[in-house]
């Protein structure tokens, strides 16, 4: 008798390994990239290079940017890291306060919910009006945009804490600090990582956008300069670097996740 496979059964249930799925995805990515390059090449034959430069011209621009403007890339990364780091700490504190200090909860929640309704562009314009210093502007914009993500997820995370585990830890007569250290902090790690994974790409894009509006250095500022000078090859080069940066950041968070959440069992949905 042969095993009948239901036509709607997902592939994973038929025993396709994760490695095979990764290979398949990489192959698909490679195909899309080759098609994009071919499209660029074809298009560049019909339009001037300030509309669409040839792929080789763009590759040269990438090399030039990497050698000449590496400082700008590092500055953007630094801005991104300290803003995400600050938002992580502040968001966790606000989320924890929302979950653990009952009288504050409705007020903090209200502030966060109103904040989520304010467009990123408004924060950028506020920052330009309120702060002279470019670093302060970028930091403020990113903090205002990112904090609510952490605060709401950490709040939900703490609320999802098992009362069984709380009761178990309490049998050892802990202080509040013990509960925070041994129960709450390890419990929220997956929520912090999940939030970071979701926002890191968005945060990188927002950093570049904020730099475009409020700074003369950094990737966003350089992209603005390239656009003003009609250097489309450099605009595309910066875009390519941003995509690579984004994928690297996602990889970094995924690595941290593998390291910090190695205790979690792999769940396979059949």
């Amino acid at each position: 008798m042969t095993d009948a496979v239901h036509p709607e059964t997902p592939q994973i249930a038929r025993g396709v390994s994760t490695a095979t799925l990764i290979k398949r995805d990489l192959w698909a990515n490679a195909v899309v990239i080759v098609l994009l390059i071919a499209g660029m090449q074809a298009w560049s034959g019909f339009v001037p290079n300030y509309i669409m430069p040839a792929p080789l011209e763009t590759a040269a621009a990438v090399g030039k940017v990497l050698t000449r403007d590496i400082g700008d890339i590092l500055i953007t990364l630094l801005r991104l890291f300290y803003a995400v780091g600050f938002a992580l700490v502040a968001g966790c504190l606000i989320g924890a306060a929302m979950a653990m200090i009952r009288p504050l909860q409705p007020y903090l929640k209200s502030i966060i919910v109103i904040n989520t309704g304010i467009p990123a562009l408004s924060w950028m314009l506020f920052a330009i009006f309120w702060f002279k210093n470019a670093e302060m502007r970028i930091f403020f914009i990113l903090a205002m945009i990112l904090i609510p993500f952490y605060a709401l997820n950490i709040y939900d995370g703490i609320r999802a804490l098992s009362t069984d585990l709380v009761e178990m830890v309490e049998t050892f007569r802990p202080t509040r600090l013990h509960v925070l250290r041994f129960l709450i902090l390890p419990h929220i790690v997956p929520y912090v990582l999940m939030t970071t994974k979701s926002i890191i790409g968005y945060a990188a894009r927002m950093t570049v956008f904020a730099e475009l509006l409020s700074s003369t250095i950094g990737m966003g500022a350089k992209m603005g300069l390239a656009q003003n000078n009609f250097h489309m090859d450099q605009v595309i080069a910066w875009t390519v670097l941003l995509v690579i940066l984004n994928l690297s950041l996602q990889g970094l968070v995924a690595g941290a996740e593998r390291l910090l959440l190695r205790w979690r069992p792999e769940v396979v949905v059949r």
Binding site: T171, R173, F182
Partner: peptide
């Protein structure tokens, strides 16, 4: 808190911390 270390409990389910 004065009973710390003098009393402990084992429950119906193991209640182990999954990250430890």
């Amino acid at each position: 808190r004065q009973l710390r270390g003098k009393l402990s409990v084992s429950f119906q389910t193991d209640r182990l911390l999954p990250w430890r």
